[in-house]
Simulated assay, not measured.
Amino acid sequence: METVWTGPARLDRSLDDDVIGYGVEAPDGSVGTVIRLSPVPGFDHLVIDAGVWKFGRSVVVPAGMVTAVDDAERVIRVRCTKDQIKDAPRFERDQDTGDLFYLRGLGAYYESLTATPG
C-alpha cells in the first residue's frame, strides 16, 4: 500500500542521497533544491531549501508526492502545488526531521490533498 511517506512504485529509482542538490518542481513552478532526505524509517521525505520563494525557509515534502525523478535534468517533480506546499505545517530549518509529532501532522495534511471525495 502506498502512503504519502512511500515513494510511488512506478518510479524506476529510489530516492537516495544522490538526489541531494536536485531541483524540485511543482506543477506551477520551482519549489527549491533538495538539501537532505529523511533519516526516519517509514517516513520518507525530502527537505527542500525553498530559498526566497519561502522567505529563506525549508519545506518538507513526503516521498509519496513525488511523480518523477529526471536524472538528466537533475529535477524531482511533485504533484502538489506551490501553494499547497506553502500551506503545509511549517518546518523550521533547525527542526529535527525525526519529530514524530510534526511528521504525523504533516502526513495528515498531505493525505488530505490526495483523498478523493466519496
Rank of each mutant, 00 (worst) to 15 (best):
V4F: 04
V4Q: 00
G7F: 07
R10Y: 13
L11A: 02
L11D: 02
D12H: 03
R13I: 05
R13L: 09
S14N: 06
S14H: 05
S14M: 05
S14K: 13
D16C: 06
D16L: 12
V19T: 11
I20W: 06
G21N: 14
Y22R: 03
P27F: 15
G29C: 08
V31T: 01
V31W: 00
G32L: 09
G32I: 01
T33E: 15
V34E: 11
V34C: 07
R36I: 07
R36W: 07
R36C: 11
S38N: 11
P39D: 13
P39W: 02
P39Q: 10
H45L: 15
H45V: 11
V47I: 10
D49P: 00
G51L: 05
V52A: 14
W53Y: 13
R57E: 12
S58L: 04
S58N: 10
V59Y: 01
V60L: 15
M65W: 03
V66L: 04
V66T: 10
T67W: 01
V69I: 15
D70V: 08
A72M: 08
E73P: 03
R74W: 07
R74E: 13
R77A: 14
V78Y: 00
C80A: 14
T81C: 05
K82F: 05
K82D: 04
Q84H: 00
I85Q: 01
A88L: 09
A88V: 02
F91M: 10
F91K: 01
Q95T: 02
Q95F: 00
D96P: 03
T97L: 14
D99A: 01
L100I: 13
F101N: 07
L103P: 04
G105W: 01
G105C: 04
G105E: 07
L106W: 12
L106T: 06
